Amino acid sequence: EVDTLELTRQVKEKLAKNGICQRIFGEKVLGLSQGSVSDMLSRPKPWSKLTQKGREPFIRMQLWLSDQL
């Protein structure tokens, strides 16, 4: 189980620290539009309420944070 709230907090922190905009992060890392990324980072759904497809971007965020992506 992933703590989506904590994960998105860490992602936002790393984006800010490295000067990466959400649009680029969305396109290059998540394969999503800036609007989708913005929504996901500001209002993450609980892991238990996400479908497999809904969980994929959060898994990619985890990999990106651990420099595996």
Rank of each mutant, 00 (worst) to 15 (best):
D39E: 14
L30M: 07
R55S: 01
D39N: 06
F58M: 02
F25M: 02
L15G: 09
D67F: 01
L65R: 01
R60Y: 01
K53P: 04
L32N: 04
T4E: 06
G54F: 11
L7T: 10
S66N: 15
K28Q: 14
L41I: 03
G26N: 07
V29P: 03
G31K: 08
T8K: 11
E6M: 06
K17V: 07
D3N: 13
M61W: 03
T51W: 12
L15I: 10
M61T: 02
M40L: 15
L7V: 12
L69C: 11
L69K: 12
L32V: 15
Q68D: 09
E13A: 11
G31L: 03
I24C: 05
L15Y: 09
R23A: 09
S33I: 10
V2Q: 10
S33T: 12
L50K: 00
R55E: 00
P44A: 09
V11W: 03
R60G: 04
D3V: 02
Q68M: 12
G31A: 05
P57N: 14
M61D: 01
C21T: 15
E13C: 06
R9Q: 08
Q34D: 10
L15S: 10
E56P: 01
S42K: 13
Q52G: 07
F58L: 04
W47G: 00
S42R: 11
V29C: 09
G26E: 02
S36R: 10
K53L: 09
V29N: 01
P44S: 07
S33D: 15
T51K: 09
P57M: 15
A16W: 04
E13S: 08
S42Q: 10
W47Q: 00
A16Y: 05
I59S: 09
I20V: 06
L5H: 12
S38F: 05
I20F: 11
R43N: 12
M61N: 00
W47L: 02
I20N: 02
I24M: 12
K49F: 04
S38R: 14
M40E: 02
R55Y: 01
T4V: 05
L50R: 00
S36K: 15
L50F: 03
E1K: 12
I59F: 06
S42Y: 10
S48I: 05
G19R: 14
V11D: 11
E13V: 05
E56L: 06
G54P: 01
E6L: 07
K14N: 05
W64S: 00
S38D: 13
P44M: 06
K53T: 07
L30D: 01
F58Y: 15
S66W: 10
Q62W: 13
S48D: 14
E6R: 07
V29K: 08
R55P: 00
E27A: 11
T4D: 10
I20M: 12
S66K: 15
G31H: 11
E27Q: 13
W64P: 00
D3S: 10
L32T: 06
N18P: 12
P46C: 03
Q10K: 15
Q22Y: 10
K45F: 05
L30C: 05
G26Q: 01
K45G: 05
K17P: 02
K28I: 02
E27M: 08
W47I: 01
P44T: 09
P57K: 11
L69D: 06
